[in-house]
Amino acid sequence: MSDGQNNETQVKKAKGFPFTVVRHVVQILILMLFLIAPIVAGWGLFGGMVGGDNAIATPAQSFPLYGTLSSSTIFGITLIDPFAALQTVVAAKAFDPAWLVGLLPLLVVYGLIRGRVFCGWVCPVNLVCEIVDWLRKKLHLQVQEMPIPRHVKVYMALGVLVLSAVLSFPVFEALSPISFINKGLVLGSLAGGLTLLAIIIAELFWGHRVWCRSICPLGGFYEVVGKIGLVNVHIDHDACIGCNKCKKACLCDPQILDAAVAGEDAIVRAGDCMLCGKCVEACPTASLAIKPGRPSKNV
């Protein structure tokens, strides 16, 4: 009892980095970053701009960053969503070295940090799902925890690539709920709206974070990339009291913390981890920390 109280006071004192707040700020800032160019150019949002006889300022010229999450240009450098580029390669049955140049910066950055940092810190659908989490709690709705295994999303990614090859168009780009939010705001494009609606319904009434955890093909792609990430959730086995609060808080899959909490691994190794920091925040003994380093197993 007194131990517990000590722990509680420790939480107050050792209140670490406010991951969730910072993450939400980053998610919103990144979403807004793409809106600056059309706003500065005077085009406004939702793609309503129609020109006249004379050339006008364009978003492309008005701000050093324009585009969307599928592809953007930053200070003249072209970035391409690596998964979108991959879909184009198989759909067009063609390859251009320029695509490699475009996708490499993102692949290297996400690869070096952790693939699903995209999911946790950039993707607007994650933000929507966290809002749905909050709403579900308000409405006292009970849903299942992991109705679909988390690795299914890797097969979804493979399926998208196979379908893109067969149907000869980048399939996920046509249905992506990320596009609906990001491109809806920038361009007024409504593609992917039904997917987002389906996600919100499923999240609210069926499975907790089922889209992000188990289905999203882009998440599946980044899960694979995430297997080599150099920034990880590290655990201090001496400090851990095995309370499992981290598992309850995990945005991905409680399972991915099992090995670390059981003392079998020094880090959360699964490619699913998106460094959201929920577990770090939930830990009452400050035994979890996000930091660089990827020690091999059983250290």
Partner: peptide, 18 residues
Amino acid sequence: MARCIKCGKCIEACPYAS
């Protein structure tokens, strides 16, 4: 259709907003 990833950059680059 095989190549377009719907990024919208052409739309944002058109000086006549066509």
